[in-house]
Amino acid sequence: MSYLTRRLSTFPLVMLGVSILVFVAIRMVPGDAITAMLGTEAGLLTPAQREALANYFGIDQPIAVQYWHWLLGVFRGDLGISVTYGKPVLGVILERFPLTLQLALMSMCVALLVGLPAGVFAATRNEKMSDLAVRIFAMIGQSTPNFVVGLLIIYALSAGFGILPTMGEFTPLLVDPLRNLGQMILPAVTLGFAFAASVTRISRSAMLDVLSDDYVRTARSKGVPKRSVIWRHALPNALIPVVTLSGVEFGYLLGGAVLVEQIYALPGLGRLVLDAILQRDYALVQGCVLFIAFNFMVVNLIVDLVYVALDPRIRLGEGG
């Protein structure tokens, strides 16, 4: 597992780079934290009060010094205090994260359950009408913004069936699974729609490549039935690009889906980041971005490990 240790050893370096970038970037946005926090009341502050506040939050010091203090905190497991929530940043993030993780997982399930079979089906009926239908559907799925899909789903359900999506206070999965799923299923479908379209397209083209490979011909020459040729011989070889795509998309979803969270009124990571940026809640933004970057790297690592499991030719960590 020397590969794993090598990959893990790059984690801190990437995190360091990401944190410096975001630290500098957020401070280059016009406007300051105090104005953002106090709104119009900020105009009433005397310069001395302003300075005292800035000193209290530590934002009167040079960026490098601020960064250094923050970094020392990170090593102690302290990502700072969110000014908007008045709570430790890590706690705020971990409060929101289960929802985002659940949403991402559910969307991916929708995408794979719909996209893989659709792509495989289209590939086996290459250039026939049914293939064309799947391709058009996939094209629409990819090119429609997900807030449009979300609104259409809500409209169709309420106008057509009189069903309204379960709104109101978000219920965590463990508290009331049924109510939770009722709240989550529509957002998951909305996000999964475009995701499924991408999966369909990539699995279709990968399958088309694989189906003309020599070993598929060999399988047929052995008398392997069609179903088995497709699912047992061809599909495992076509999965690599699907895994790559799913990994990237899943990584994005873990960063939160602002629009869909907004439409369905879900308190996810996406809205947390957006609010934090609008509020100039420096500590929270930094914490969120760092957390998202970390998730992305974990997802990438998992993707690499899945590659190894799928294809024995990929031997990570061995020479060559």
């Binding site: 020599d214 070993y215 011909r217 020459s221 011989h233 294809d311």
Partner: peptide
Amino acid sequence: IGMIFQEPMTSLNPVL
């Protein structure tokens, strides 16, 4: 009817 092909390197399924 059995059959063998030209390219043994590509004629066997790489993942099985």
